[in-house]
Design a protein around this nucleic acid. Structure first.
Lengths: 251, 251
DNA sequence: AAGTGGTCTAGACCACCGT
DNA sequence: CGGTGGTCTAGACCACTTG
């Protein structure tokens, strides 16, 4: 990552100018992707990275700044910079936006119902970038807030990464699924996109959620991505919104 | 904003350390709030601000960086730094997350139905930080995508800022309401929080939206804030989600 | 006290936009 | 061309954590 040589070679290869700190960022993302640094670990100090890349500390800082803004890293003054982890309580509710109406912090527990391999439907296939009919790992589970069932999730996972998943291995109960995926399967979710609609409860889902068929439910379809914007999960969630709501902040 | 004096005085007044760039940021936000710089205008160059505040350019940059990240300012290389405006097409859909299922860019048009003064209900009052029964400006309007009605909004505005609002003044049609508020009433919305739920259509709303009563609709309750996190609008929107959905990206 | 991230400086140079 | 924001440097010092 010598300054002059890398920049001039980049100029030749790609006329689109890419600043040094961004090249360093990309390099560090590749390190995360390759598993050189693990979630929860501290990465080398800014000074050491600067020496390693042969740039000034300010340039490394800017690369880390962007990665921290994208929730890939977490800075802690006086301690170091750490790889973000779903184990960290701070990022526990980053992907679950359902909150009780009274504003209290829910005690969320996951109840897996089934886990099997099956053929992907059109929606799941399109979201995961595979062909309809290709195999996916399919999980059904309930989520309970303080004992009350509030979410029914139908989860589709790409087979190549989650081949060994079983119902027993999902019974972690308390910790989030993404925590489990990160620790047991080495797959870290870094981004997700959701599509929301209001739908009428079908009989099967209504039974699981303890409501009458036809009752309005919030349908949340989520595609979750790991490093390199690779989609690895598509889920269809039905949320009860009678005593809780989906919270969203518009920056 | 002399470096040494301001910092030492801050230390005495407030033991909680506040870095220089953040003091500058707060100062600039107050300038925006006071209307010294208007939406769409260019603010002084980094060099000029650095001289004015008697700090280095890098310190001003960091203040501007944060404000740009919060959508208060927009940087344009080679041209300058500008006060963000809802007139800018780039920030046109920042607060409207409903998009057609086919991913196309909708042509959104607003149809105001009524505009009057009335007493705030409990929900509106709580959101706006006033007492139930206090007067608010109340607007009902429809939003159409390519001619089809997709949203029914019930909008509550704080009286002090929107006193002169009439149905005629709302018939801008094409441009967004926030654009109109910014230009005609000097109120710029900088942040909003939404609560989403699925509900069954009441007869009145169903009629306006052209659906059967009881059909599931997406209820979006939004509180919008201007500078200083002052709530100035609370709206209750009912969204048809049969051919469009609410899109949300989880960072 | 040592090590980390956080702030601030002064200056050089580059990329982009307008005239 | 001059003016703007964007990048990069080298070094000083501050704030926070840990031992």
């Amino acid at each position: 990552m010598n300054r002059d040589s890398s920049r001039s070679s980049f100029r030749i290869a790609a006329p689109t100018f890419s600043p040094l700190y961004r090249q360093i960022k990309e390099f560090m993302i590749r390190s995360l992707e390759a598993g050189e640094w693990h979630p929860g670990d501290a990465i080398p100090s800014e000074g050491e990275l600067a020496a390693r890349f042969n740039v000034s500390q300010g340039t490394v800082r800017k690369a880390i700044d962007e990665m921290a803004a994208e929730n890939l890293l977490v800075r802690r003054q006086g301690k170091g910079t750490f790889v973000a982890s779903h184990d960290d309580p701070r990022s526990f509710f980053r992907f679950l936006r359902l909150v009780p109406d009274d504003g209290s912090h829910p005690h969320a527990v996951s109840f897996p119902l089934s886990c099997a391999t099956r053929e992907a439907g059109e929606d799941a296939a399109a979201a995961l970038g595979i062909a309809a009919g290709d195999l996916v790992v399919y999980v059904e589970r309930l989520l309970r807030f303080n004992g009350e069932t509030v979410v029914f999730d139908q989860i589709h996972l790409v087979t190549e990464l989650f081949a060994g998943l079983t119902l027993e291995s999902l019974s972690g109960g308390d910790r989030s699924l993404y925590s489990l995926f990160e620790n047991d399967y080495g797959v870290r979710m870094i981004h997700a996109a959701e599509h929301l609609r209001a739908v009428a409860a079908d009989p099967y889902s209504a039974g699981l959620l303890g409501v009458q068929p036809g009752v309005p439910l919030l349908l949340v379809e989520r595609t979750a991505y790991t490093y390199g914007n690779k989609p690895v999960e598509w889920r269809r969630g039905l949320y009860r919104t009678d005593r809780q709501h989906y919270r969203n902040d518009l920056g």
